[in-house]
């Protein structure tokens, strides 16, 4: 059993009296794709926000590769090896497709404080960005501004940015949301490609059961902010807990 790359210990956040994420303890290992499921409002995205740092935890800890990152700002978590793609498309709309990826490569190379050289002169960064665009088949759109792209291509670019970031832990929040049936498989193929790397830990929030069935090695179920089930897909999907959580019935026994 490999060492877990990401661990949450009793991770909790309260908004006033409402407990949005309730003492979730869970470990994620490299080479494994974990799907996080649960009804709307179960706390899946909030759990993601706690891990990537957009929200600070009320209690509990987050550990990435053995390092406590609970109090680190978002950018430091990214530097430590965390990569997050968002539910709503989140890019630099007026910059070009290539520049969107190049900025990610530049961040990873830590050359942002380079004041006295020309950005165009850092050929290696541009080459790397172009390679990533080729991998996701966006090369033909490299010089378009993001705002001019279709929704599907924008989502593809977000995955491209994740690939360019080369994190140890990938977090996808409904990557196929709002995509047509024809476009979605491209994204899923890319995620399957990421998963093929045994070093990568992948977390995926998803609603579509067929997606989960084809990609996930493991499912965890959140309900009212608490972790209520954890195991292989077939087992978890057959369990009463999941059936009840999705049907919205009261949980009598957890």
């Amino acid at each position: 059993m490999p060492q877990p790359s990401l661990v949450t210990h009793d991770l909790t956040v309260r908004f006033g009296g409402h407990v949005a994420v309730d003492a979730v303890s869970c470990a994620f290992t490299p080479g494994e794709l974990t799907a996080i499921v649960g009804p709307n409002g179960a706390g899946k995205t909030t759990y993601f926000n706690l891990i990537s740092g957009q929200i600070r935890a009320t209690a509990g800890r987050v550990e990435l590769l053995g390092q406590d990152i609970t109090r680190l700002p978002v950018s430091a978590r990214t530097e430590a090896g965390l990569g997050r793609a968002f539910q709503l498309t989140n890019l630099f709309p007026r910059l070009t497709v290539l520049e969107n990826v190049r900025l990610v490569v530049q961040a990873r190379a830590r050359r942002g404080f380079n004041l006295w050289t020309m950005a165009q002169g850092h050929r290696d960064l541009i080459d790397q960005a172009e390679q990533v665009l080729e991998r996701v088949r966006l090369t033909h759109l490299a010089n378009q501004t993001v705002a001019a792209l279709s929704h599907g291509d924008q989502r593809k670019l977000e995955v491209a940015a994740m690939i360019a970031l080369k994190p140890r832990v990938f977090m996808f929040d409904e990557p196929t949301a709002g995509m047509s049936v024809e476009e979605a498989p491209v994204i899923l193929d890319l995620i399957a490609g990421i998963k093929a790397d045994a070093q990568a830990t992948v977390l995926l929030v998803e609603h579509k059961m067929d997606v989960i069935r084809s990609l996930a090695d493991r499912i965890i179920v959140l309900h009212n902010g608490a972790l209520v089930a954890d195991g292989p897909p077939a087992e978890v999907m057959a369990s009463d807990v999941v059936q009840e959580a999705y049907l919205g019935k009261e949980l009598t026994d957890v």
Binding site: V74, T78, L95, V104, A107, T117
Partner: peptide
Amino acid sequence: NSPFGRVMLAIRENAFRAEAIGYRV
């Protein structure tokens, strides 16, 4: 026109994302 200047443009465009890809805004 330096890498720093590009980061500033990125921050103007979307500070939230600039932070998420690893720039301390």
